[in-house]
């Protein structure tokens, strides 16, 4: 039901690594205001944060849509980056294509996508090389 859905939209800035995660911080605040349980909020926040970092590292930013229904929190992260050539490989823990400068910032350990899957109930990746990637994740409330 449209009336039962609360939506938040965010632009994720791809130019500035230091601002990455700002949308996730905001989502966390808003979910708290909605009275969502701390455990659900943490799972959403971590998955969203990893997704946000990925968009900044790999895709020059993108858009994030968070929808809260009575049953679940649904995150849709859409970018127009290079796409993922081999999703199965990208899902392997430790596999990373991040540059060395990203590793020096504490990321790029190849845990992003596996982590997003781990903290959510469902995750679907729609990607095409040269076109971009959309990741849809849900966490049950």
């Amino acid at each position: 039901m449209p009336d039962d859905v609360v939506r938040f939209c965010f632009d994720v800035d791809g130019d500035d690594f230091s601002s990455a995660g700002a949308a996730s911080v905001e989502v966390k605040k808003r979910l708290r205001q909605l009275g969502i349980s701390p455990e659900v909020i943490r799972r959403v926040a971590i998955a969203m944060y990893e997704g946000e970092i990925n968009m900044v590292i790999h895709a020059d930013g993108g858009k994030a849509l968070v929808e809260v229904t009575p049953d679940e929190v649904r995150m849709t992260l859409e970018d127009h980056g290079p796409g993922i050539a081999d999703v199965e490989l990208a899902m392997q823990e430790g596999y990373s294509t991040a540059r060395e400068n990203i590793r020096s910032l504490g990321f790029g350990a190849g845990m992003g996508l596996p982590n997003m899957k781990k903290y959510t109930d469902t995750m679907h990746i729609d990607t095409e090389v040269g076109r971009g990637t959309t990741v849809v994740m849900t966490v049950k409330i």
Binding site: S19, G21, V25, Y49, L105, G106
Partner: peptide, 15 residues
């Protein structure tokens, strides 16, 4: 020993 804003954000995400 890492110093950048993502350290704070990571800690915030993990409560």
């Amino acid at each position: 020993g890492l110093v950048n804003p993502q350290v704070i954000r990571t800690a915030e995400m993990m409560d």
